[in-house]
Nucleic acid binder design. Structure first.
Lengths: 238, 238
DNA sequence: TAGGTATCCTACTCACGGGTAAAGAGACGG
DNA sequence: CCGTCTCTTTACCCGTGAGTAGGATACCTA
C-alpha cells in the first residue's frame, strides 16, 4: 500500500527525449518546453491517474525539478486542463472539417466519430475523457463542461440531420449521442494494455458496429434458431 | 481551490437514515451498520470521486467519527473494493439468470445488457465502473481486473453464440463487446445530473440502439439525400 | 565588463487526510 | 456489584504532495 506510484528513476525509455538535458542547443523556445511539460503530464496522468501523479513525478520524467515545472505552468489543475483542451481540440477540428460537406449526415457523423475515436486513443485521450470536474475549481469545471457539452450537441445535431435526410434510422438523438460517445470514450480505459490495434482501426471498427447494429441484415437468411418457447421470452421481459 | 469537498454538515436530507443515532433499538446488527457504511461510501464516491472523499466525510454523513468507520472496515481501499463488488454482483446475477434459456443468443445478450445498464445507473455504478486499479494495491487490483474480465468474456461469448445461431450479424466479438460495455459504463458519468429517466429506461433505449444500428432499415425508402459529390467522399476517407 | 533578464535549482512551508492508541460508555452475564 | 465484551469517542501521529522563497547560473545587451 506504500510504493505504488513507483517509477524507476529515469527509466531509460527514450520516448520523446526531454528538451532540456537532451539538446545542448538550449533553445529558449519557451513554447517547446511548455508543450513538453504538458505532453509529459498527459502521459503520466494516463499511466497512473491524476491523483496518483505528483508534480515531482512529472518533473522527474523531464529530468527537471518541480519548481521548473511551475515555471511553465501555474498549478496542477491547470496542467490537467491544458491536457484536456489539447484532446478536445482534435474533436472540434473534426467537426469543422465535415460541416457543409455535401454528403448524407450519417457519413458526416461517422467521419466525426472516427476522429473522435482516434483522439480518445491518443496521448491526450485519457485527460480529455477523464478530466473530472470534481477535481477542478468551479471555474475550470464550468469551462470543461461547456466544451464537452458543445461536442455532445454537435453529435446530436448530426443525428437529427441524419434522421431528416433519411440516412439515419429515426431514434432518440440524445440517448443515441450518449451511447456513441460513451462507447468511444471508454476506449481510453482499455486502450493501453492492448496496443495491437491503432486508434484509427478501433475507431473504424466501432463506427461499423454503430452503423450496422447487432441484428442481422436481411441477406442469406439463416433461419437456424428461432424463438421456440414463449415462456422464455416472458422471463426475459423481466 | 480550497473548499470544494464541502458538505453542509448534516444536511437534513433524511435519505436512508443512519442506523446509529436514528434507532434507539441499538441492535447489535453489525452487518446492517457495515452495509450502511459501504452504501454511504458508494454515494460519496459517486458524488465527489474516490480521491476527493475523505473518510471523515463518510463518517460525517453517518453522523459518526472516523474511527467508527474503521471499526467496520479496514481501509479506504477495502471500502472501494466492497462497493465495486456490490455493483459487479448484480451483473454476474444477470448472466446466471439467462444461461440456458432457450432463446436466441441476441435475446440473452440484450437481457444481460439491460441488467448491466441498470447496475451502472445504480448506487454502486460509479464504483463498479471507475474503480481504478491504479488506486488499489496490486492484490486487489488483480482481483478487480479478473472480475471485470469475466464479465467481458461473458459478453463476448454471447456475441459469438449469436453469430453462430444467426441472431447476430457477424462481427468482431471483442471489439463489439468493448463498444457495448463502454456505452453502458459511460452512463455512470452522466446519469447523475439528469435523473429524468430511470436506469431501466436508459438501458432499454441503449439496447434498442445496439440492436438496430444507425443505418435505416429497409422500409419506406426515403431517397432524399444521396451522395452527389465524389470529392466529398474522398475527403471523408481521410 | 557591468547590469539585466530568463531559466532552473536547493530548501523550505503547510494543510490534508489515512490510520492508530487508548480511553470512555453502555449492556449483559454471573 | 463486578468484570467483560462491544461499540464509539477524543486526541493524536506522520507521510505525502502542492506550492513558494530566494538564491545560483547562464545568456544577452550595452
Amino acid at each position: 500500500m506504500a510504493s505504488r506510484r513507483s517509477t524507476p528513476p529515469a527509466a531509460g525509455r527514450p520516448a520523446p527525449a526531454s528538451p532540456w538535458r537532451a539538446s545542448r542547443e538550449r533553445l529558449r523556445d519557451r513554447e517547446v518546453k511548455r508543450e513538453a511539460v504538458i505532453r509529459t503530464a498527459a502521459r503520466e496522468f494516463n499511466r497512473k491517474g491524476y491523483h496518483n501523479t505528483s508534480l515531482d513525478d512529472i518533473a522527474a520524467r523531464l529530468e527537471v525539478t518541480k519548481p521548473t515545472v511551475y515555471y511553465y505552468v501555474t498549478s496542477k489543475e491547470q496542467l490537467l486542463f491544458e491536457c484536456f483542451v489539447a484532446g478536445v481540440e482534435q474533436i472540434r477540428a473534426a467537426f469543422r472539417e465535415v460541416t457543409g460537406l455535401p454528403v448524407p449526415a450519417r457519413a458526416r457523423l461517422s467521419a466525426v466519430l472516427r476522429h473522435y475515436g482516434e483522439a480518445v486513443a491518443s496521448e491526450f485521450g485519457w485527460c480529455m475523457v477523464r478530466a473530472e470536474d470534481q477535481d477542478l475549481s468551479p471555474a475550470m469545471s464550468r469551462h470543461i463542461k461547456q466544451l464537452k457539452s458543445e461536442i455532445d450537441h454537435g453529435i446530436r445535431r448530426l443525428i437529427r440531420e441524419g434522421i431528416q435526410d433519411g440516412s439515419i434510422e429515426p431514434c432518440d438523438a440524445k440517448m443515441t449521442a450518449f451511447a456513441l460517445a460513451g462507447a468511444l470514450n471508454w476506449i481510453a480505459h482499455w486502450y493501453r494494455e492492448d496496443q495491437s490495434l491503432t486508434g484509427a482501426q478501433i475507431a473504424e471498427a466501432f463506427v461499423a458496429i454503430f452503423e450496422g447494429g447487432l441484428r442481422p441484415r436481411r441477406g442469406p437468411a439463416r433461419p437456424s434458431a428461432r424463438p421456440r418457447l414463449r415462456r422464455a421470452r416472458a422471463s426475459l421481459a423481466r
